[in-house]
Design a protein around this nucleic acid. Structure first.
Length: 123
DNA sequence: ACACTGACCTCCT
DNA sequence: AAGGAGGCCAGTG
């Protein structure tokens, strides 16, 4: 179904780029137990190098959104957005509940990284 | 309209 | 190897 659902009554950008919405569409497809990175999302949107924009889009999400933003982390596996989930421990707990494992403070990227480029290839 | 802000990433010391 | 500077560009005030 439509990736962005009606419950998202917060304001999306009404102009053309629709950048936020495209970010959310990708994030919604990250499988449970997997994570991806800001950079990987930016790249698949054709905006390689604009990873900060992805973070900005996620930051605009209301709390309690069903967009699984906790599955987006930085390149090395650090929970750089932890502040938006009530701190590092809270975010780590959310991910652990989904089956994500850690190596110290960092997500085990070898095990859990999911590349959003896979979307295009698989129906 | 301008200036500044980011849940980042890559290059350059 | 570790840390800093700069780039990215859509929102916001």
């Amino acid at each position: 179904m439509g990736p962005i659902r009606d419950q998202h009554h917060f304001q999306l950008p009404k102009k053309k780029p629709n950048f936020y919405a495209r970010v959310y569409e990708i994030v919604e497809q990250i499988p449970i137990g997997k994570v991806t990175t800001y950079g990987a999302i930016a790249e698949v949107l054709g905006m390689k190098g604009s990873s900060r924009m992805v973070g900005q889009a996620l930051g605009a999400l209301p709390e309690g959104s069903d967009v699984p933003a906790q599955r987006v982390i930085n390149r090395i596996g650090a929970l750089s957005g932890a502040h938006h989930f009530g701190g590092y421990d809270r975010m780590r707990t959310m991910l652990r509940r989904e089956g994500v494992t850690f190596k110290g403070e960092l997500v085990d990227m070898e095990e859990h990284f999911w590349d959003p480029k896979l979307i295009s290839d698989t129906p």
